[in-house]
């Protein structure tokens, strides 16, 4: 089942500059893990923001769970965003909240505004249990009530992943999740999100700088430069492990 389908996507920042994304096509199935490699400014972050509906689409289309993102506004757009969870390089947790609050922020998409407010001040036991369960899956259940500003960099990333889990997404976008981590922690985090993708079955799209990690953990590696997909490789070492899955037909941009 296709989770994400991008066709001929063009995104421009201003009328005079060249397009940031110029004819991207890409599609992901449930449980599939795809890495995007490319230098800074290649358009990786813009691609992720486009999938989340934060940048307007000039032409082409994006569908998430078979719902088209184009022309979606307000509530409908927010509803679609619930399907897509994001983990990014750093700074994306609210330092001033406690860990359990940051984790349950993943549930904001399904909660009413009132419930969200109430939770900040009077969290219920079952809500705390849900947060703790998510934290257990990322291996730091004991940090439940700690101030977010007091945890380490690796734990920070784990909390962000736990938040994504609470969101119960169809697709997890990991925007350079290991950019500021040392090699050991990087391995830990990547193997964590990949195994979670296997367990929960969400599709994983992860942007990276370092090819060695891409080939170590992902099914497919997409190279992107100047807003254009340069190459798509099926990662043999990995696809063997998931041989029962059909290879997705990838269409390249016209040029």
């Amino acid at each position: 089942m296709t989770v994400l389908n991008i066709q001929d996507l063009v995104v421009v920042r201003s009328r005079h500059a060249p397009p940031v994304l110029n004819g991207i096509s890409l599609s992901l199935r449930r449980g599939e893990k795809v890495a995007i490699l490319g230098p800074s400014g290649a358009g990786k972050t813009t691609l992720f923001r486009a999938i989340n509906g934060f940048v307007p689409i000039q032409s082409g289309s994006i569908t998430v769970d078979n719902i088209s993102l184009k022309d979606l506004h307000g509530k409908a757009l927010r509803q679609l965003r619930r399907h897509v969870a994001v983990v990014s390089q750093r700074h994306d947790l609210v330092d001033r909240l406690r860990v359990h609050q940051n984790v349950m922020a993943g549930a904001l998409g399904r909660w009413s505004a009132w419930r969200a407010l109430r939770f900040l001040f009077w969290p219920k036991a079952e809500e705390l249990a849900e947060a703790e369960a998510a934290l257990r899956r990322v291996g730091i259940a004991h940090k439940l009530r700690v101030r977010t500003s007091e945890i380490s960099g690796g734990e920070h990333q784990r909390v962000a992943v736990a938040r994504a889990l609470v969101q119960q997404p169809s697709l997890l976008l990991a925007d350079e999740p290991i950019a500021s981590l040392d090699p050991e922690l990087s391995d830990q985090i990547l193997s964590l999100i990949c195994s979670l993708a296997n367990e929960s079955g969400f599709a994983l799209l992860c942007s990276l700088h370092q090819p060695e990690y891409a080939y170590k953990y992902f099914d497919r590696v997409v190279r992107i430069e100047h807003g254009v997909i340069q190459s798509v490789e099926n990662n043999q070492a990995r696809t063997n492990a998931t041989a029962n899955r059909d290879a997705e037909i990838i269409r390249q941009a016209g040029d």
């Binding site: 927010r78 965003r81 407010l117």
Partner: peptide, 18 residues
Amino acid sequence: PVMALAATGGPRIAIASF
């Protein structure tokens, strides 16, 4: 962090308060 919260698709007030 705010972008990350907005990406969860929560209502505006929830994102503001979190």
